[in-house]
Every structure is written in structure tokens, then in C-alpha cells.
Design a protein around this nucleic acid. Structure first.
Length: 421
DNA sequence: TCTGGGGTCCTAGGACCC
DNA sequence: TCTGGGGTCCTAGGACCC
């Protein structure tokens, strides 16, 4: 048996927890660069503020409706996430952290000691008491059914935020009510295709013949259908598998037309990517860079391009990765565009930095590379100062906008919440 | 003026091997 | 007139997730 616990309106709730004065007011959180709405609390949802709405288009309405608006504060959300996950891990035999705000719980054996619905309520109470955040809990014999139960727990308030789908009759009853588009693994495209086949409700997908599903879709949807029938196809993945790729990219605060600024940005993303790579204890052999103009800009022709390069020896050295990324940039740079975004991607990972050299290769590994990088990371994590590459620049005029950023309440001493008595 | 960032998995098709 | 069978690896593109 699985449970899915996820935090209601996670980002918006994190902001609200530290701002009791906002109680009852609509709260939204914007994407990076203050681009569009990515989280809304219940009050904001009541105002029909759509997910993904561009901020600049909806700003006037926000002012009229006294909506509290925040830039994304990932330092805060990541820390609050850790707190929630720690609580969940203490309550369940096994936990799979699925995203920043949700986790699957393996409930094997729990029903021997406790009613599962009561367990769900206990999880809610504890998370609320210890973090101020509210979770919804869905329970079912497969992950997909647990997800569906969670959806129901959030959609219908009379459930009290917990839905247990242990019983087949309850599963089927819920599935007659829920659109197939709400099922986990069914996105916009597949939903439309299913509708064309006359499959509109979740139950119809559950009952559809396997052959029909396989004829029109891939094995992925077949698994989804089986899971809806109560046949587990997906297991708990308690230990995060090693990453296959690392991407670091950002939109620019203002459009970039100057090569030097683009180079700084690419260089900075490459450095960040290399740090992530070392945190994964991996070495990479493929580096690529991309640039693009805004797809929304009218009267401007779109230009986007990407270039990749193979590195002879797997590396985790920032110097190699910066060099490779800037080489890629030079291959795709074009003057005369107003660029909106760029990024760096790493791939082809190895767990150690040794590879068989060709007979005539002369690319000896950099001596002392590991130790140098370790020193770099230690300094940059110490909180006492930063060292960086000259190529990253000092002004960073291209950096993203975060004009409504809240304090790092939980991760920076100077930002600690003050309570006046 | 202004529209996020970071991932995974699957499939089809081409290149290439014997 | 007739031109095999079986396989791997890689990449691009499409779908999905949060």
C-alpha cells in the first residue's frame, strides 16, 4: 500500500507561514525572473488567477485585488521541504521523495497497527504542527491510485484532506467521477487522443483493453492503465538514482545582445553545473551550451541554437567545463539578436575520472584537479566568502530579476524572523 | 518592456556490424 | 527474375512530471 503526501500550494504556503499578516489574503509566487505565476494559495485560486499567467499581463489585477506577490525563494522552499520530508521519514517505513513538495510513503505493515485513514490524519497533524504547512494524503494499492486519492483529497474538502482507496469499490466510484486528464501520466496530448477514442473518465481507461492501449500508445500508458486497475507496475524508489544529465539555465533580467555578457552568463552556468556534478560525485564527457531569443517577441525573428562537444577524459573540473561551454557558445553565437535565455548542459556521466586513453592521445589528466576543486567548493560553501572565475564577470548585469524576494528566514542568520512582544 | 527551470522515459529511424 | 537475417548503438523528437 502506498500513500502520497503533498503540501498544499507549497511555495505560497511557505511564504504565508512567515507572514501571519497575510492570512486571508491571496498570495502568489512567480517563476524565476518574475516571469509568470507558478503558485497560488486558496484565496488566489478563488480569484481565478491562472497558473502560468505572465506577471506583466496580470499585474494590474493583482494591485486591484491586493494580491501579495513574491519572487521565487528557493532557499526557503528547499529548507521547508527538508523539514517536511524529515517528518514523513520518521512516520513511515520507507519514503520516496518525488518532488520538492511531495513524497510517496510505503505503508507496508502500517495497516496491521493502525487504520490507514487515521494514519493519514496523523501525518497531517504532525506536519502542520511542526512546519505550519498543510499536506494532503492519498492512499492506494498502487502509486497511480495513491496519486488519484491525493487529487480527491485536495478537490473535495469534506474528505478532511485524506482519502483512502484501499477498497476496490471506492477506487471505481472515484474513477467514474474523475476526468482521465487528471490521471498521473496522462498529459494534454494523451488526454485528447484518449477522448477521441471515447475514453473520458479514469474508469474507462482502467477498463480499456490492454491491446487497444498498446495499439495507440506506448508501454508507459499501459502501465498507467494497469495501475488504475490496482496492479502495481511502479515501485518505491527510495534512493535517488544518479542523474543522467545536469542542466543550468536562466532567463536574463534584460535581453542580452552583447557577446561579452553572454559569455559571462554561459561561464557562470558552466561553473554552477560543474558544482552540481561534483556534488553528485560524477564526471562528465559531454558539455553543451544553448542560446535562444524569446519565442514571444513579435517583429523579431526567432533564433535558438545549441552546440555540444565531447571531452576526451571524463572531467569534473570547472576549468574544463567552462572551456568546453564557451567553445560551444562561439559555435552558435550570432550578432544582432536580443537573447532571452541561455544555458549549459552536462551529460555522459562516469563515476570516476579515468578512462581508457587512445594509444596516441596525449591528454593527461590535470594534476591536482580533484583537490583544487574540493578547496574551491569548501570555500564557496563556508559562508565566509566566494571565489569565482574571471569569466563569470563581476557586474552580472544579465542576472534574473527577483524584485519581490522574501527573506531567507530559515537559512540566513541576518534574516531570522523577529517577533515583537 | 515584460512569458521558469530541471528532469525522466520511450520510440523510431539511421548507421553500422557480422 | 532474383538481392537475408539479426542485432547494437546513437540521436532526435515527443510525451510526461513537478
Amino acid at each position: 500500500m502506498f500513500a502520497l503526501a503533498d503540501v498544499n500550494s507549497f511555495y505560497a504556503s511557505c511564504e504565508s507561514v512567515f507572514r501571519p499578516d497575510l492570512q486571508g489574503r491571496p498570495v502568489v509566487v512567480l517563476s524565476n525572473n518574475d516571469g509568470c505565476v507558478i503558485a497560488r494559495n486558496a484565496e488566489a485560486k478563488l480569484l481565478n488567477i491562472p497558473m502560468g499567467a505572465p506577471y506583466f499581463k496580470i499585474r494590474a489585477q493583482f494591485e486591484r485585488d491586493k494580491v501579495a506577490v513574491f519572487s521565487s525563494n528557493y532557499a526557503l522552499y528547499a529548507d521547508m521541504s527538508t523539514r517536511v520530508m524529515t517528518i514523513l521519514e520518521a512516520m513511515a517505513p520507507a519514503v520516496e521523495i518525488y518532488s520538492i513538495d511531495e513524497a510517496f510513503l510505503n505503508l507496508q505493515g502500517v495497516s496491521n497497527c493502525q487504520d490507514l485513514e487515521a494514519f493519514g490524519h496523523e501525518v497531517r497533524a504532525k506536519v502542520r504542527q511542526w512546519t505550519g504547512l498543510t499536506v494532503g494524503v492519498g492512499i492506494g494499492p498502487t502509486k497511480t491510485l495513491a496519486k488519484l486519492a491525493n487529487y480527491a483529497a485536495k478537490k473535495w474538502s469534506q474528505t478532511g484532506g485524506v482519502v483512502d482507496l484501499s477498497l476496490m469499490a471506492r477506487q471505481r466510484k472515484l474513477m467514474t467521477l474523475v476526468d482521465v486528464a487528471e490521471v498521473w501520466g496522462v498529459g494534454r496530448r494523451i488526454a485528447k487522443k484518449l477522448n477521441n477514442l471515447g475514453i473520458n473518465k479514469a474508469l474507462q481507461l482502467a477498463d480499456a483493453p490492454t491491446a487497444l492501449i498498446r495499439k495507440h500508445f506506448s508501454v508507459v500508458l499501459e502501465r498507467t492503465a494497469r495501475e488504475l486497475r490496482g496492479e502495481p507496475c511502479l515501485e518505491m524508489e527510495e534512493f535517488a538514482p544518479t542523474k543522467q544529465q545536469i542542466i543550468c539555465s536562466r532567463s536574463f533580467g534584460d535581453r542580452v545582445s552583447q557577446y561579452e555578457l553572454m559569455r559571462e552568463a554561459i561561464c557562470s552556468h558552466a561553473v554552477r553545473a560543474a558544482e552540481k556534478l561534483r556534488a553528485e560525485h560524477q564526471y562528465c564527457r559531454y558539455v553543451s551550451a544553448f542560446v535562444k531569443t524569446s519565442p514571444f517577441a513579435e517583429n523579431e525573428s526567432y533564433y535558438g541554437n545549441t552546440a555540444g562537444t565531447k571531452i576526451q577524459i571524463p572531467t569534473q573540473d570547472s576549468r574544463d567545463i567552462v572551456a568546453a561551454a564557451t567553445t560551444c557558445l562561439d559555435a552558435i553565437w550570432q550578432d544582432g539578436h536580443r537573447f532571452q535565455k541561455c544555458g549549459v548542459m552536462l551529460g555522459d556521466f562516469y563515476s570516476q575520472g579515468v578512462a581508457q586513453l587512445g594509444l596516441f592521445d596525449d591528454y593527461p589528466p590535470r594534476p591536482g584537479s580533484e583537490r583544487l576543486m574540493a578547496v574551491l567548493d569548501t570555500i564557496n560553501h563556508s559562508g565566509k566568502g566566494q571565489v569565482w572565475f574571471a569569466g563569470q564577470g563581476t557586474q552580472k548585469s544579465w542576472e534574473m530579476k527577483r524584485q519581490m524576494l522574501s527573506p531567507a528566514y530559515t537559512t540566513r542568520f541576518s534574516d531570522l524572523l523577529r517577533v515583537k512582544l
